[in-house]
């Protein structure tokens, strides 16, 4: 596998570009029913915007605010592409992984679109792929394909 991590600063815009695709395909886009705080995509994009505007990578307590009532259908291929971008941006903090890390918040938003429970992030991309495979082999295959595609 290629080196899936980006070099240098975390590229928040690259993750947002993946999340924006969900908005472009959403029936609620530009309607009064678009409620970002209650939407997994909206939440992730707000996290990324907030982090970019403040120049931070951790938002204390934000993990507790993840929407849990967003049951919209999402395309697995787009989720895999989004997860692949979080893998590329992950700094692999391992034991020092923080659930309030903005990358983690985006990843959990994406997981919640398709998985019935979150993966306890092991702090490394390789171990994460193995964990995804256990929960959802099809998603893991798509994710691996996305990571290999660059």
């Amino acid at each position: 596998m290629e080196n899936v991590r980006s070099v240098g600063e975390v590229n928040l815009a690259a993750m947002d570009a993946q999340m924006e695709k969900f908005c472009l395909n959403c029936d609620f886009r530009d309607t009064p029913d678009c409620r970002e705080a209650a939407c997994l995509t909206g939440f992730a994009r707000k996290v990324l915007k907030f982090a970019a505007s403040r120049g931070i990578l951790d938002i204390p307590g934000a993990a507790k605010l993840l929407p849990d009532q967003d049951f919209k259908p999402y395309y697995p291929e787009m989720i895999a592409a989004g997860l692949a971008e979080t893998c590329r941006q992950c700094r692999e903090c391992r034991d020092n992984h923080s659930p309030d890390c903005v990358i983690s918040l985006v990843r959990r938003s994406l997981e919640n679109m398709i998985l019935t429970e979150n993966i306890d992030y092991p702090g490394s991309v390789f171990a994460y792929l193995a964990a995804v495979k256990e929960k959802n082999p099809d998603l893991a295959a798509m994710l691996a394909k996305q990571l290999k595609s660059r």
């Binding site: 907030f50 938002i59 204390p60 307590g61 934000a62 507790k64 605010l65």
Partner: peptide, 8 residues
């Protein structure tokens, strides 16, 4: 601790 970053 507050529930979360209030600014956020």
């Amino acid at each position: 601790a507050p529930a979360a970053d209030e600014e956020f």
